[in-house]
Design a protein around this nucleic acid. Sequence first.
DNA 1: AGATAAAATGATATAACATAACAGTCAACG
DNA 2: CGTTGACTGTTATGTTATATCATTTTATCT
Lengths: 157, 157
Amino acid sequence: MNIERRSTGSRRASAALVSRAERLCHDQNLRFTPMRRRVLAELAASPEPLTAYDLADRVREEKRVAPVTVYRALEFLLDAKLIHRIVIRNAYTACDHAPHHDATPVFLVCTRCGTVEEVPSEAFQRDLSETIAEAGFRPKSRVFEIEGECAKCHAAP
Amino acid sequence: MNIERRSTGSRRASAALVSRAERLCHDQNLRFTPMRRRVLAELAASPEPLTAYDLADRVREEKRVAPVTVYRALEFLLDAKLIHRIVIRNAYTACDHAPHHDATPVFLVCTRCGTVEEVPSEAFQRDLSETIAEAGFRPKSRVFEIEGECAKCHAAP
DNA sequence: AGATAAAATGATATAACATAACAGTCAACG
DNA sequence: CGTTGACTGTTATGTTATATCATTTTATCT
Ligand SMILES: [Zn+2]
Ligand SMILES: [Zn+2]
Ligand SMILES: [Zn+2]
Ligand SMILES: [Zn+2]
């Protein structure tokens, strides 16, 4: 099974990701405001997930902003499926899969460098879904997050 | 968080779980102190996961206790694999699988009644592990949590 | 354009979850 | 005994997230 990798290392992708988001919002009649753009750009430029307070600090360098404003932007971006929340980090990361796959991805979170890789999970979820269906459980949302050491860090000294 | 009445059944199960924990700690030369016993008993008696502050409130009814004391008990119980942390709830739940399975379980968290069901995930993890290994990622810990509606709630009006 | 309704943001406060730092207590062991 | 190490108490603070209401911006309709 092959794996799509998030190019977390490349900051050049940030501009592309933001303009893609802009098109996507325009097509869906969603308002891609300066604040939302700014928050997404910061996330897209960061190799690791950022907390709401991290984001507030970064945005604040050019304009005073309260955490709640960042939370509102994050909520919009989550709804638009432009970003993900990494629950085990209480942090947020841009999604560069477009259009977004349906199944909730699995996130591989490196304990050394902090990067997050997003892995599609269709195959696993098929099996899991059967088991869950047998239990009569109706899933609405899922969190699959794995902490460990990424390939790069493992190779490093 | 909300307070739910405990059934006689869960109290009985709670006692069994606590004495099992007592034996387990004795065998491993771990100190099963009154505070740890008390915290585990509260978790075992609760049909849904409890936060550290929920626990502090409950223990406080008989003895003044600070949140940090509860956190210390929780840390011990987590290390001893007697409880689990439900990350999407910032809450803790007793584990009644003894001895504990090796694979990280999948937790099914009901959005209506709040109960948590723990299901083994060997098959799921086998597939997942292969894919992850291909990416060179060395997993250390995992979170698999699914929110939805449990069978009981789905049947109810 | 001007009125108006809806959406977004600003500002302040507070809730909820978690850890740091240090002092006191208690049981085990030589 | 007295020392040691583990546990607990106490206070303070850090971190993440939400509530509330005022103000500004944007879209929509005369
Ligand atoms: Zn994605
Ligand atoms: Zn790494
Ligand atoms: Zn368990
Ligand atoms: Zn339910």
